Computed example of a mutant assay.
Amino acid sequence: MVRIREWEPATASDAEIDAWLRVYNAAIAADVPGEPPWRRDRLRDYLSAAMPIERRAAWIAEDHGELIGYVGENLLGYDMAGTAVIELFTEPAHRRRGVGGELLVAAARHAAAHDRDLISTEIVEGTPTVDFYAAHGFRPTVVEESSLLSLSTVDWEQVAAKSNRIGAGYHIEHFPDGPPETLLASYADAKLILRHTPVADVEWHAGFEASRIRDSLRTLRARGLRPYVTVAIHTASGEVAGLTELVVPAHRPDRADQYDTIVVPEHRGYGLGLTMKARLLLALRTAEPQVETVQTWQPVGDEQMLRVNAELGFRPHRRWYDYEAPVSAVIESRRTA
């Protein structure tokens, strides 16, 4: 008999953490073959730590005591305070038994109880999750394309040359643990460029964003994600003209994930994006020699970033979708299933 119960990774037994890892790797191998398997290193921390203004919750499905499925939920804060983000997977041998649906509705009911209106998740094109979420009222909202760089194929002399190709009036700095406090306000100003839409009840300003970046860096470290940041500095003003970010997860140390790459509008056209990313790759090679691949994402249609990535050797890999549904619709979908 299948039982759904709330689960706390921070206090779970080692055997349960091992079972979670086994089922996760089985699901990944079935749905996205070729992805590197996860490891036990810092996995409990990764599943437990959250931003101070956010809250995590999780449920597992068990069949006669054996873990066969999981859903983790993050109740977001700041400008996304009405949204719950989930990650859900089930053991391939136990699919088509309604287990995923029961886990999903457990998360949706929890989201509703905490005044969340929307529930969101990330899926990969061509996987069984597409039909699963569509059947529960989810629709795509954002489409991104991931690109993958195999470090064994990189021409490092060319990358080194690109890392020095920078316009007059700028210089590059690299920070292996995130930007220093002296640059944080300017770094936050650059990050605010991603905030296009005013949000009710949230007043966006650099001080607020700087505090959020501090919290984000602390949370990354607490989850076992090692951050690396490279910035372009406008020499005359000392301001951040651009930035690029990358993390190496302890639980998957052979693949690095690239996060935001931003060039401030008035500093575009000087090749800063390419130079920063090249410098970051050189630093990564030295600091994390076990990394085999680097994964990055860009919105479909972002031709400029695709060209930058292609020049460094990245190749298109997969399409990723943000899927979203009203919480009420997800709960109703189970009543009518």
Rank of each mutant, 00 (worst) to 15 (best):
G100H: 03
D63C: 06
E144Q: 15
G77K: 00
T197H: 11
G238S: 07
E87Q: 12
G137K: 04
G137P: 06
M276C: 09
A210Y: 02
Y70K: 04
P253Y: 04
K191T: 06
V85L: 13
H136T: 04
M305A: 12
A27Y: 02
G269E: 13
P253N: 08
R252A: 13
W297S: 13
V229R: 02
P265R: 07
V202C: 04
Y259K: 09
I172L: 13
R268C: 11
T244E: 05
E181D: 11
H136P: 01
E125M: 10
D302T: 06
P36A: 10
Q304I: 15
T129Q: 13
R319L: 14
G98C: 09
T286F: 00
P265E: 08
T182Y: 00
V231N: 00
R279D: 04
A325L: 05
L103I: 08
T197D: 12
R319V: 15
L103A: 02
L217S: 00
F89G: 04
L148E: 11
L183M: 11
E203F: 06
R39G: 15
A200F: 05
H171Y: 12
W156C: 11
L148I: 14
L281C: 03
T141I: 14
I119L: 09
Q158R: 09
E16L: 15
K277S: 06
G34A: 10
K191G: 01
V142P: 02
L75Q: 11
Y321H: 15
R268V: 10
V231P: 00
A29P: 09
H136A: 04
I331T: 06
N25D: 15
S147G: 14
R334E: 09
L118F: 12
I123G: 01
A200Q: 09
Y133C: 11
Q258K: 08
H205I: 02
P128Q: 07
R335K: 15
L280D: 00
R334D: 03
G301P: 03
R55K: 13
H171M: 09
K162E: 12
Y170E: 09
A185F: 03
R218Q: 10
E245A: 04
